[in-house]
Amino acid sequence: MSTAERALRADARIRIRELGKHYGPLEVFRDVNLEVGDREIVSIVGPSGCGKTTLLRCIDGLIPASSGTIEIEGEKVTSPLPGIAMVFQHFGLFPWKTVFANIAYGLKLAGVPKAEIDARVPRFIKLVGLNGFEHAYPYQLSGGMQQRCGLARALAIEPRVLLMDEPFAAVDAQTREILQFELLRIWQLRPTSMVFVTHSIEEAVLMGHRVVVLKGRPAGVFETIAVDLPHPRTRATLSYPRFSALREHVWTTLMDEARAAELLLQR
């Protein structure tokens, strides 16, 4: 995206400029520029280890960037800002808290009064379909249910920015599909800024308004693909010819590198 183009986006909630990050001698990514609108889902795909989780951690203010800046609604991110919620690749549920207490956690820390928490948590438990499991501990839940709980915890604070780190990677294919459409439905009810990291190209195209391909060593934004599929997206979306075309496009963009590596091996 050129500077002129970037200046045009008035609705950008997240602004990432010239972002670079290295761990000691390891340069993970450099010159990452990205803007996410206030009602936009941006999918991020890229090979394992290219820095997707690192990028989300930077946006969440958990780790400092090495260069460049991140702004959320004009405020520079130097530590975790209010109203940003992350759904973790590792679920990140507290095993010593019940489902209810886990979902209430973010609200409690945000200083929401107890009466309000008691009213709000059951709504989100219902929203993600965990009714009846309020008092269960995480070890009593299946992987898919744990991920729903993590999702509810993030949604409960009604975040202005939702950061999703391969949220459905650890669940089975069917649960995954259910959760994808559930999330789309929830987003439709209350649209917000979302950065959606995934390994699945289908999922990236299905969820995103745009798909950002991270690639290279150090990684950078290799290509941004606009997903011109109609909303709301449903199961029917998966069978559109346009969906297949976009999926192929992202696949080719991503696979160039893998194919090159393969050729190198054959030699």
Binding site: L62, P80, H90, G92, F94, Y105, L109
Partner: peptide, 10 residues
């Protein structure tokens, strides 16, 4: 990871 979650929620 548990600490990361805590910090993420400020």
């Amino acid at each position: 990871e548990m600490l990361e979650v805590a910090y993420s929620f400020r």
